[in-house]
Design a protein around this nucleic acid. Structure first.
Lengths: 206, 206
DNA sequence: TTACAACCATACACCAACGAATGTAAAAAC
DNA sequence: GTTTTTACATTCGTTGGTGTATGGTTGTAA
């Protein structure tokens, strides 16, 4: 095949990553060959091995396209003067919306449910990294809420943070296992709202 | 090799399953060959193919040894006259204790984090089955709690059930990702107690 | 314009794992 | 005591996937 222009080459790379998302999600990482990914993208394995060193390198590049730190989600939706609990609420909703996009949904489902570790890739370490990042952000907000007297007196912010993080983690796992079972945004909003309402000192609000 | 007695044959079958638990957990299901499992058990692949049809059949047999329906956990620990919330509390604790046993820990960690679907095995269907079983049981208890006036008036039993189930699901996923990170029993007890306390109408009780 | 290098296709060698076939010695059935 | 079956071990053909080497065409910089 002829040499492409730089833009075309970049498009090829993106097409390979798109194809990897789809085939990894459908067949699982271990059960997909680089040949299948190449064909899905209308290329051959030569293109794959040109743009990526191997399957692990391709997988890593695929993940790099779908990062979303919690602080970023909050900054996108919550005004700077929002209360800590409102910031959490809005950040979660933004996360639900993003996760419902096909790209994020497929990649995260692949990470959580369709890949084991292989060669030098450790999906659990990546999961742990994201979970801890979220946990740290939630802890800051809930500590602020505590300081502002928004939480129940008998609720430790540390415990509340772990509780909320476990709820979110379970929600994501359950939804990504079968995205047709329920609406992530609706149920997620319902659960987060309820959980934060149970956390708060003032029962009437929310 | 000489023929074994029936008891010895059953012992080799168990040894193969034990070996499968260990190697699947260490290497991941996709990355372990039947040869590795056989060698771990001190056998050859001939033994494996005698007792099991293929890797999927072996995997399924491995899972069959670690079932624990929620009702069974409750029946083992809670007296028949316990309140619904107390039954949930005790059932969860019993589940945490069981899950901390090496066998259950390894198998569930393998199911959740170390296997993709392969051939005719669908791990997510098995996860969903267990999750739904637990969800159904929790719903019954929380409906009873509602009927007995134990829940907050502003809390729907359905929502509470989903909230608790998501929390448990997230807790298991997070712990099985790194069982050294924290004690499942301690944190699990803490989270469940807190969650149920937030659910209940009477805040003073423990 | 020319030469190089980017970009991708094609071809090839290699290896690990599967599954089936076969061998076999002892246990169990008669 | 003989036969049959069990419970494996061993061997072998096949296959699917990987990584690399090589070829070929064309942007692109000088």
């Amino acid at each position: 095949m002829a040499r492409r222009t730089k833009a075309e080459a970049e498009a090829t790379r993106e097409a390979l990553l798109d194809a990897a998302e789809e085939v990894f999600f459908e067949k699982g990482v271990a059960c997909t060959s680089l040949e299948q990914i190449a064909r899905q993208a209308g290329m051959t394995r030569g293109a794959v091995y040109w743009h990526f060193r191997n399957k692990a390198d391709l997988f890593r590049a695929m993940l790099d396209r779908v990062r979303m730190p919690f602080e970023e989600l909050v900054a996108e939706t919550a005004p700077s003067d929002a209360s800590p609990l409102e910031a959490i609420r809005l950040g979660c909703r933004q996360g639900f919306r993003r996760m419902e996009q096909p790209r994020h949904r497929r990649v995260h489902a692949t990470l959580l449910h369709r890949c084991e570790f292989f060669s030098d890739i450790d999906p659990q370490a990546m999961e742990a990294e994201m979970a801890n990042e979220c946990l740290g952000a939630l802890l800051i907000y809930l500590n602020n809420a505590r300081d502002q007297g928004l939480l129940r007196d008998d609720l430790d912010p540390d415990v509340a943070t772990r509780l909320l993080q476990a709820t979110l983690s379970g929600l994501f796992h359950d939804w990504l296992r079968d995205t047709e079972a329920f609406s992530l945004y609706e149920r997620g909003t319902q659960l987060v709202d309820t959980q934060l309402r149970l956390f708060s000192r003032d029962n009437t609000s929310g």
